[in-house]
Design a protein around this nucleic acid. Structure first.
Lengths: 332, 332
DNA sequence: GTTCCTTATTAAAACGTTTTCATAAAACGT
DNA sequence: ACGTTTTATGAAAACGTTTTAATAAGGAAC
């Protein structure tokens, strides 16, 4: 606590010029000054280890080259992969990303959102589904923060969005199972699922008749997947569509505990294509979302909006595709 | 962009008092003012949706109630669980945590570190092993930022630290394998491992003779674990000690690809006890680190240091324990 | 040698707060 | 009615920058 921070005044004093001169030179306008002056200032800066005070700077330049990312749960590999994609483009654009883990806690989400806002981030990426529209509207819109909501579309024409084609994903899963000869199938998904997950079910219904699909309410976790197994076994289903790989991993355990084999007794298909799918035995057939690319696209779009705030709202949709591995069995 | 931010002046004007009065009242010193004044100010604040400018405040109050957390790879479940623990205590203490993912990239790490520093975080938790001592010394120490390095001890008596008992962990793994009758065992770990991982090996050697352990250089990833399998099979080992669960998961796949069964052909034991261990088939026997608690302890210690910067450096060590599941086989 | 550009530099204002100190008004004691 | 204390409020300084407009000094032009 002894070193009182070195300020621009110290640099000015040591190099025998005014603070205005120091500021100019240090901000790249050095060509307007004589070489000797420039050199003196540079030297003084180096000697003193001077670093401009961030807060003082921000009082003038309102921009911070930072963007805030809000995710519901960092533990979920989907989000960690997503973040990788986001960081990939943000870092290259010299933005730094501040990540907040809302931890499935809406209050926390609010706190982080307003905190990031106060700290002058230049924009937000919100992957957290719990954020109520109200919170978004209140905080983000009033402060006119550029933001982009990811992986779900709450309201039309009111913000940018990047989505994946959930309907097609659900449809492909269904088509795959049907082509394998499964007549009755169980779908594992949350009771009050976000819009994107609802669409997966809708896509599924475009192939299977409602009478032949058994929807079982399951949270988006391994634990919930495991616990859903008895309910599945109470139906005539021979195949299971889990709307997230996490659920599917839980199902693996649940099935094993009940002495059932994958894919002989049950075919299972997941959703997301998290890295772990390849390491589980048998390897998990799943609907692959381009997670990394989703992050990249989102970040790019946010950057575009920051650069050009008056652009019309834009909505992008990324394709998904079936990745066939070893967890589904042909009944024919 | 039309609404120029509302400042304290606007509030003062609207409520017919001075800005000093507004500031006092809004900072909880309202009892020094007449009730009517207080009420006018509160009303004006509400009407105008006034929020004090963060940067202006920070120019005065140097504290930010934020701590920066640097991790090497958010994708790794070990770190995501750790972060959960950290956030758990930080959030309760009304601190907000800013997470930066160094992405195994040392340059990125440096950038984030200095960026967080500039932004006036009150302290750091550094779980990122790539940070060179040099960087820590330069940035953190010069600025006198409280910080704590996690999961490794680079230098003695130079900072706080929280560790787990890696030596005991390695030892327990070895004892378990030995008690099962394994004579020759393979250890999968990085060639230039961090200090904590080296200790696991040391602990292992306290049980097994060096001649009977076959160390195979393996990065800390699933992919690397998978690729290490042929090398393992070239040794007489009947058991595999992977220094992280990630590696062990890779080994599962690699063994399956080579037609070997766990635990009949090979016993495998992991390290960390990530949630996924329970979901893999067979369930993975592993050395459990108290990951969440590790995060909590670290955060608490940092908070203690911030509150009392002159405390002597403190070092805590947490216990680990063997969790026996289904991936190890008794040869006797 | 006066006028007029350049060129190199700086004084001062601004950013939006918090805090310290002074002051006016009211209340009190006598 | 007058000093004294208390209460309620505001003026101004400070935080550390960036930016704008002004100034001094040097040439060049005539």
């Amino acid at each position: 606590m002894k070193n009182k921070a070195v300020t621009i005044k110290d640099v000015a004093r040591r190099s025998g010029v005014s603070i205005a001169t120091v500021s100019q030179i240090l901000n790249g306008n050095g060509d307007k000054f004589s070489p000797t002056t420039v050199e003196k200032v540079e030297a003084a800066k180096a000697d003193l280890h001077y670093e401009p005070d961030y807060f003082a700077q921000r009082m003038i330049n309102k921009k911070s080259k930072t963007i805030g990312v809000l995710v519901p749960d960092i533990t979920n590999p989907f989000f960690s992969e997503l973040i990788r994609g986001i960081e990939d483009v943000l870092y290259q654009a010299n933005f730094i990303t501040m990540l907040c883990n809302a931890d499935l806690n809406e209050a926390k989400e609010q706190v982080y959102l307003s905190e990031l806002s106060r700290r002058g981030v230049d924009g937000f990426i919100i992957a957290s589904s719990a954020v109520s529209n109200q919170a978004i509207t209140d905080i983000l819109r009033r402060k006119q923060h550029p933001f982009i909501v990811l992986d779900q579309k709450k309201a039309e024409g009111v913000s940018d969005a990047v989505l994946t084609d959930d309907y097609a994903g659900g449809r492909q899963a269904a088509q795959h199972l049907q082509s394998l000869g499964h007549q009755e199938v169980a779908v594992l998904m949350p009771a009050h699922a976000a819009a994107n997950i609802q669409k997966r079910l809708a896509g599924f219904y475009s192939v299977y008749d409602q009478a032949n699909v058994h929807v079982i309410a399951t949270a988006l976790s391994k634990k919930a997947g495991r616990e859903a197994v008895p309910a599945v076994m109470a139906t005539p289903a021979t195949a299971i569509f889990a709307v997230s790989d996490q659920i599917a991993f839980g199902v693996y355990l649940g099935l094993a505990e009940n002495g059932r084999q994958i894919p002989q007794d049950y075919s299972v298909i997941g959703y997301d294509d998290v890295e772990m799918c390849q390491y589980v035995v048998p390897q998990l057939t799943t609907i692959a979302q381009p997670i990394f690319e989703l992050g990249q696209t989102t970040a790019k779009q946010l950057l575009a909006r920051i650069a050009e705030p008056t652009l019309p709202w834009q909505e992008q949709q990324l394709a998904v595709k079936l990745v066939e591995r070893a967890s589904t069995n042909n009944l024919k």
